[in-house]
């Protein structure tokens, strides 16, 4: 892929347009990755020039949706990094079990695989009945997808292996019904989800949670935006609550770091101090 199809000033023009016209603020996204994704969209969509791309974004609402969904990364899987879920099962769930009511936020949930993973853990620990899992993403399409609980059947073998690596003891296939090439997850899991659009860049805190997942979201932001989002997460987490980031993400550069104790440094799970 030619990394130079789109020029730096064209990116600036595009980002300013997206913000002015639609309120999508990508200006503090990490630039190297953003540039790569915009280039990729232009190649995949066979757009010969920046002018063409910009015109489509301005004139075609369906294309705008498509662009936003493609420029943001929505790659995820169930029980991704199984050892993280093993740690949650072992060390976090026993603490959550002591609360009368459990609220968990999956911030930037994409297609929702991690939300369902957590719902399965809670169900197996007998905690799902007193839990609510809030799943938010800036993409409206993603939100619909999470609500449906329908995932491609072809991924189930991998997810089942992840589930077992995460300490799962049941038959993973009991959680879904196969319908042709789709796996429809059970309504027991779905009815505890609250799904909504929420933009971490521009929206504010909307509740207090005992646990927040924000995995592989911060890597797409520059340091300024990372800090802003971490402050938002901090404001949304109760004292003694748990924060879970992606396995290559870190709190260490943040002003909120002193307020947190590492629970499992390799798994990137922190606990907020009192």
């Amino acid at each position: 892929m030619d990394p130079n199809i789109i020029r730096e000033e064209e990116i600036e023009q595009l980002l300013a347009g997206l913000l002015d016209l639609y309120g999508y603020d990508f200006t503090n996204y990490a630039r190297a990755s953003l540039r790569r994704r915009i280039n990729r969209i232009m190649i995949v969509d066979k757009l010969p020039s920046f002018a063409e791309l910009f015109y489509k974004i301005k004139s075609d609402p369906a294309y705008l949706k498509h662009f936003v969904a493609e420029v943001t990364v929505n790659v995820t899987e169930m029980f991704r990094d199984p050892q993280v879920y093993a740690t949650i099962r072992r060390e976090v769930l026993p603490v959550l079990a002591t609360y009368p009511f459990i609220r968990i936020w999956h911030a930037g949930c994409a297609t929702g695989e991690e939300v369902y993973s957590m719902a399965i853990l809670l169900e197996e620990s007998g905690l799902l009945h007193k839990s609510l899992l809030y799943a938010t993403d800036l993409n409206h399409n993603m939100v619909e997808q999470v609500r449906s609980g329908i995932f491609p059947m072809r991924h189930m073998k991998q997810y089942s292996e992840n589930y077992i690596a995460a300490g799962g003891k049941q038959d993973f296939s009991q959680y879904y019904t196969a319908k042709y090439d789709r796996a429809v997850f059970s309504s027991t899991l779905r009815k505890k989800l609250i799904v909504a659009t929420h933009n971490l860049v521009s929206d504010s805190s909307f509740n207090e949670f005992q646990m927040i997942f924000c995995r592989n979201v911060l890597i797409y932001f520059d340091k300024t935006l990372q800090e802003k989002v971490l402050q938002l997460l901090d404001n949304s987490l109760e004292q003694r609550g748990f924060l879970v980031l992606g396995t290559k993400e870190n709190l260490r550069f943040s002003a909120i770091a002193p307020g947190y104790l590492p629970l499992a440094p390799k798994d990137k799970i922190w606990r907020k101090r009192q």
Partner: peptide, 21 residues
């Protein structure tokens, strides 16, 4: 480069990671 991430240079000073397709 860590497994399962693309490794980029954000600029001359910092790395950036990307878990896209």
């Amino acid at each position: 480069a860590p497994p399962d991430y693309h490794l980029l240079f954000e600029n001359r000073n910092y790395f950036a990671l990307d878990a896209s397709e």
